[in-house]
Design a binder for these strands. Structure first.
Lengths: 153, 153
DNA sequence: TTGAGATCAAGAATTATTCTAAATAAAAAT
DNA sequence: ATTTTTATTTAGAATAATTCTTGATCTCAA
């Protein structure tokens, strides 16, 4: 419904996978929503908050923005099981810890060495583009007293 | 539509989270489908194969069986992004490697030490119930020549 | 055998997401 | 400064995986 759009090309602010990425008004709003409260909101939650800043914005646009910015590498999409995707602007390598009680997602700083990856029994000659580490459990706020055991899927 | 059902209670064949788990005809068929071809089929794929063994089985039942058996710990649900869930009967701790070309899923034997987990900056006092490690890339069959670099989400 | 509870089947309902088409806005070209 | 082109936004329809609902069927245990 309206744009400003300074073009951001390869090697500029972000490593966009596309030819160019325009930071339109709507995209800025969506991005700001993610930066304001870093609690991994879903698309619908982003939509509600975005309407506070820009009442006319549509859900479809929020979805568009989130997808575009994800592909551009400005934000990250976080999936836990088959629940609605969540989004975060944390670009550092990190895993996610999902509390199954309060349903909050915590960013966990993570340093998986390439060695570790190599140690796993990957098919010889595989190329790994992306690693996703997600943990589920109960956060201390929700009073997890139990053992810190871990099981792998 | 028909059952046989030897009851399997706590501490028997499986560590069911429920009071008991009955291996009905339908559940056996679904389980056998997963054992026959260990290629991480989706619910619809399981349904198609199950119909080969039991023409009258319904999709809803396949979903029910998959959920029940997942909760019972007989099989595992595998999620890649927001695509349809896939299922596998591999109970050993393992990660998943998803080839974005052939869309196949490979089981990767994995041994994440509790140490490693502890080393991550988890909120003090968290309880971890489950760790999910998913990798995306290109498998050797699909001719991945590139570097074995890795990025973390 | 009879009741209670579990399971199944078929289809409706739900929900997150994607698609479509038309309108609008910005960028590039004239 | 217009015009042309292209990208973006919007609203609503469409999709797809999954869940829910209801009634029938089955199994277990008394």
């Amino acid at each position: 419904m309206s744009q400003s759009s300074p073009t951001v090309s390869e090697g500029n602010l972000t490593h966009s996978g596309f030819g160019d990425f325009r930071m339109t008004k709507q995209r800025k709003v969506v991005y700001d929503v993610l930066m304001d409260e870093r609690d991994h909101p879903t698309a619908s939650e982003v939509f509600l908050r975005a309407k506070g800043k820009m009442p006319g914005i549509s859900l479809a646009t929020v979805y568009n923005c989130l997808e575009t910015m994800t592909h551009a590498g400005l934000i990250k999409q976080v999936n836990v099981d088959r629940e609605a995707s969540r989004y975060c602007p944390n670009l550092r390598p990190h895993a996610h810890f999902y509390c199954s009680e309060c349903r909050q997602i915590f960013d966990i700083d993570l340093r998986l060495k390439a060695d570790a990856v190599a140690a796993w029994a990957l098919p010889e000659g595989s190329r790994i583009d992306h690693i996703d580490v997600a943990m589920k459990g109960v956060c201390p706020n929700c009073g997890a007293e139990g053992p810190k055991t871990s099981s792998h899927s």
